[in-house]
Amino acid sequence: MKEKECTCPIFRALEKQGLRWNPETEEIETKRWRAKEFERYYFVDNVFGIFSHREVFDSTDDGLWNSGNYFRTEDEARKYVNEFKRMLQERTLDKEE
């Protein structure tokens, strides 16, 4: 299916609009996943803790989703926690040249 998606004009058109076809649900959806109402999602807090929240489409949910700090699973969030830590520990922008 992946190969077809890359070559079929309809899938390329969807991609340009930030959309994709989900063969499991048989629906067109945004490329970035967002939970349905009351479905659980995960996010990383300011000290790298992982928390879950139920989607209610309020300003907190919107802010986390818009920032990209919004994950389908705890495992996915954990991968990003490790990457965030690595990036901050190796940061160079604040070092004097």
Score class of each variant (00 low, 15 high):
Met1Pro: 01
Lys2Ser: 09
Glu3Arg: 11
Lys4Trp: 08
Lys4Arg: 11
Cys6Ile: 12
Cys6His: 09
Cys6Glu: 11
Thr7Ile: 12
Cys8Ala: 07
Pro9Lys: 07
Pro9Thr: 02
Ile10Ala: 13
Ile10Glu: 03
Arg12Val: 09
Arg12Asp: 01
Leu14Gly: 03
Glu15Ile: 00
Lys16Leu: 10
Lys16Ile: 02
Gln17Glu: 13
Gln17Met: 15
Leu19Gly: 02
Trp21Ser: 03
Trp21Gln: 04
Pro23Gln: 04
Pro23Ile: 11
Glu24Arg: 15
Glu24Met: 11
Thr25Phe: 09
Thr25Tyr: 08
Glu26Ser: 14
Glu27Arg: 15
Ile28Glu: 04
Arg32Trp: 01
Arg34Glu: 05
Arg34Thr: 02
Lys36Gln: 07
Lys36Met: 01
Arg40Gly: 00
Tyr41Ile: 01
Tyr42Asn: 04
Phe43Val: 02
Phe43Trp: 14
Val47Phe: 10
Phe48Val: 01
Phe48Tyr: 15
Ile50Ser: 08
Phe51Met: 07
Ser52Met: 05
Ser52Val: 04
His53Cys: 08
His53Phe: 04
Val56Lys: 14
Phe57Tyr: 15
Phe57Cys: 08
Thr60Arg: 14
Asp62Pro: 01
Gly63Lys: 14
Leu64Gly: 04
Trp65Ala: 07
Asn66Phe: 11
Gly68Pro: 02
Asn69Tyr: 10
Asn69Ile: 09
Phe71Thr: 02
Arg72Thr: 01
Arg72Glu: 06
Arg72Lys: 15
Thr73His: 10
Thr73Trp: 08
Asp75Leu: 09
Glu76Gln: 12
Glu76Tyr: 04
Lys79Glu: 11
Tyr80Leu: 06
Tyr80Asp: 03
Asn82Phe: 05
Phe84Cys: 06
Arg86Ser: 05
Leu88His: 05
Leu88Gly: 02
Thr92Pro: 00
Leu93Asn: 10
Asp94Cys: 08
Glu96His: 10
Glu96Met: 04
Glu96Phe: 10
Glu97Ile: 14
Glu97Pro: 12
